[in-house]
Design a protein around this nucleic acid. Sequence first.
DNA 1: AAAAATAAGTTGATCATGTCAACTAAATGG
DNA 2: CCATTTAGTTGACATGATCAACTTATTTTT
Lengths: 142, 142
Amino acid sequence: MTEAIVSELSRSLIEIAWHFGPKGLRGECCDDLTMPEFIALEKVSVTPDCPVQVVGHPLGFTKSGATRIVNRLARKGLIDKVKSPQDARICCVVITEKGERILRSANSRYMKKFKELLAKVPPETVPEVMKAVTVMAGSLKR
Amino acid sequence: MTEAIVSELSRSLIEIAWHFGPKGLRGECCDDLTMPEFIALEKVSVTPDCPVQVVGHPLGFTKSGATRIVNRLARKGLIDKVKSPQDARICCVVITEKGERILRSANSRYMKKFKELLAKVPPETVPEVMKAVTVMAGSLKR
DNA sequence: AAAAATAAGTTGATCATGTCAACTAAATGG
DNA sequence: CCATTTAGTTGACATGATCAACTTATTTTT
């Protein structure tokens, strides 16, 4: 494949990234959940007794940044912090009922945006595109 | 297509977006060009005599934010601000030689990342994926 | 068992980057 | 020629992250 085409494509991907990006669904719904907050909440929801630092991993944050985003989510009532019984240094982060609700709501917002994009793609290629996106994302989780 | 699959996919896309995102190639190269700076520089490079506000458009910035990002790029020597001879209110923003160089460098960085992702995708589906990404990005430019 | 090293988390100081509203200066048009 | 609009800038502010220094708890070494 030619450089020019890959170049064009990576620019397209960046545009999509920005569109879905930090200002993604600001103010559109969901307690004004920012994109990093969404990613953090998602991480908490799939990680049982998630330590604070781990919340920062998918975001590439330092542990300090992790503390701060966890505190923000806690202040909004989306998560709870519980001291681990095994190791008192560790702070188990768990999602609350409200957190689950907000996460679902935010997720459907993003889905809506994504569907709008997919609508422009030739329908017969959709399954392959979806598979490709999944594979690409999967290769990011180290 | 089922909700569950679209949900999974939109999360994948968000992960990719974050990976390419604001902290994208921070410190990896290119004078520490941030993602919004990259987008701004790109805009300047394709828009002859680009007014300041226009730089902010693809980013969704206010004119104030546009001024600030333009000043940052100017301070780094990547662009020049020239008063328009036709209308002295307007400030024509033009990319410098250094700006062109940095832009190319940043672009190839992003391309490298993108290629790494594409490598995980079944090769025969690559052309369709590329087309789909382009179309999706295209539908964002209103 | 005591001391040293390591690890999790927090916090103050700071920095980066955006908004808003008020401003200046230039153009436009009754 | 005055009123309005427009481009751009700026000060005050909000947000959100880092860094380094700290506390507290666990683990390792001796």
